[in-house]
Write a protein that binds this DNA or RNA. Structure first.
Length: 217
DNA sequence: CACCAGGCAAGTA
DNA sequence: TACTTGCATGGT
């Protein structure tokens, strides 16, 4: 049986409306946010990005000039700042060396080559790479995160221990490869879990309740 | 006090 | 391939 992914999308969109993701003004800011939000709440990431903005460090040249220690200080609220500041310096250095410091040149790669390039960067795994592909490069990549796995397994669409690629294929195999659809779908899953699943006991009033598997008798 | 949050890399078996 | 551990802050 095919999972009711379209129906779930319709229910989420009706309940929450468009989410207008990614919450960033530029591609570079989006990429920084993708690294900063790794295993970290967005409220902490927002503080880190505010520090970067206040210090005019949401620009490529400023990040090139800044030391890793300075960046670490700015992004401190986002946690793991020693690692993430290294990832950022590494990313900026790679874009300079391999793409002349141009995001346009980087994003001129076709989707498979771009994904492979992003995954080669230290600190960029499958979720971060697909987030950048979808929200910065506007490619039809489905972003899988802890929320996506939670919703998928809760509804019996995937197994508890499904791999990243298995979860991604659940969506890409059953939906049209549409950037706007993938954008909204992932954002709605995050909205659902943050606002509802994490705060409401026992899924009471869950927008996806009509789709939940019947409890065993 | 414990536990979690829009992961990832490095080490081990 | 599959599992474990360290990374770090701020909120509940």
């Amino acid at each position: 049986m095919t999972p009711p992914l379209r129906q779930a999308y319709g229910l989420l969109l009706a309940r929450f409306g468009p989410q207008h993701w990614w919450p960033a003004q530029t591609r570079l800011e989006m990429m920084l946010g993708a690294i900063l939000t790794q295993n970290t709440s967005w409220t902490n990431v927002a503080k880190a990005i505010a520090h970067l903005r206040r210090n005019h460090a949401l620009q490529f040249d400023a990040l090139e000039r800044a030391t890793q220690e300075q960046i670490a200080e700015w992004i401190r609220p986002a946690g793991y700042f020693n690692q993430k500041s290294g990832y950022i310096k590494n990313m900026v250095g790679t874009i300079r060396e391999r793409f002349g410091g141009s995001l346009n040149t980087l994003f001129a790669l076709d989707t498979p080559a771009l994904r492979k390039e992003l995954l080669s960067w230290k600190g960029v795994g499958p979720e971060t790479a697909d987030s950048i592909l979808l929200y910065a490069a506007k490619r039809p990549a489905f972003v899988v995160d802890a929320y996506t796995k939670r919703v998928g397994s809760r509804h019996g669409w995937i197994g508890e221990k499904a791999t990243y690629d298995e979860v991604a294929r659940l969506f890409t195999d059953h939906l049209p490869g549409d950037v706007a659809l993938f954008n909204e779908y992932h954002a709605l899953i995050v909205r659902l879990c943050k606002e509802h699943c994490n705060t409401q006991p026992k899924c009471a009033g869950c927008p996806l309740e009509p789709l939940l598997p019947k409890p065993p008798r």
